[in-house]
Computed example of a mutant assay.
Amino acid sequence: MADIWFEDIGASGRFDFVRGDFPAYLMVMGLVWTHGSFFEELLFRAFIISNLIDVMGQGRWVSIVAVVIAAIFFGYRHLYYQGMHGALVTGCIGLVFGLIYLKLRNSTILPLIIVHGLANSISQTTRFLG
């Protein structure tokens, strides 16, 4: 759907230095698992959604609004290097992750951290291999 309105610029060359460079790949993989998955899931799912629900009150619609707001912030976070196409796609992924988080809220966020990390790892490994 984002393809209809916006050009897919990928990561706009932000990670091109990883291609064929094993030390750079290892460095980026460290960032993928610390910042890209762990930090982003804690911030955009656990912190933003939980705190918005706490502030706005409990309820199904409040939870949905909190997930949508977090997804917008998540998409916006990726706008500067993925363009509007990437922001929309990432925002939609954030929406799905947020809904999953609502189901997991009283148990663990670990599955989201793992899935997020694996998706970013596949992307970076593909980039490294060219």
Rank of each mutant, 00 (worst) to 15 (best):
S37R: 10
V18W: 06
D8I: 05
V89S: 11
G130D: 03
F15R: 03
G30E: 08
I100N: 02
A70L: 10
H78R: 10
A24L: 05
G30D: 07
G94M: 02
T126M: 08
V18F: 04
G10K: 08
A87C: 07
E41D: 07
P23G: 12
M29K: 01
I64P: 10
L102G: 04
V89Q: 11
I114W: 02
N120E: 05
G117C: 01
Q82A: 07
F97N: 07
A66I: 13
R77N: 15
A66S: 15
I49K: 03
V32H: 06
A70H: 09
I4C: 13
I109N: 03
V96K: 04
V67Y: 11
Y80L: 15
L110S: 09
F47S: 00
F97Y: 08
M56S: 01
A24C: 01
H35F: 12
Q58L: 08
V96A: 14
T126F: 02
V18G: 04
D54K: 13
F47L: 12
M1F: 15
Y80C: 04
G59S: 06
I72Y: 01
Y81M: 03
G94P: 07
Y25K: 03
A46L: 15
G57L: 07
S107N: 11
I72D: 08
L31C: 00
A24I: 12
G20V: 13
I113D: 01
T34C: 10
L43C: 04
Y76I: 12
N120D: 07
V67K: 09
G86E: 09
Q58E: 15
R77P: 10
P23Q: 10
A66L: 09
G36E: 10
L79C: 02
F73L: 14
L102R: 06
P111A: 01
L129A: 13
L99I: 14
I64M: 07
S123P: 02
V89Y: 07
L118Q: 11
H116P: 00
G75M: 13
I113L: 02
H35P: 01
W61H: 15
I4T: 15
L104Y: 01
L88P: 10
Q82I: 08
G13F: 11
G94N: 05
I64L: 13
P111E: 08
S50W: 00
A24Q: 14
I4L: 15
F74G: 07
G130R: 05
L52W: 12
S37K: 04
H35W: 08
G20Y: 05
I122P: 04
I100A: 14
G83D: 10
S123N: 06
E40W: 05
L118G: 04
I48E: 07
D21C: 03
T126Q: 08
F47P: 02
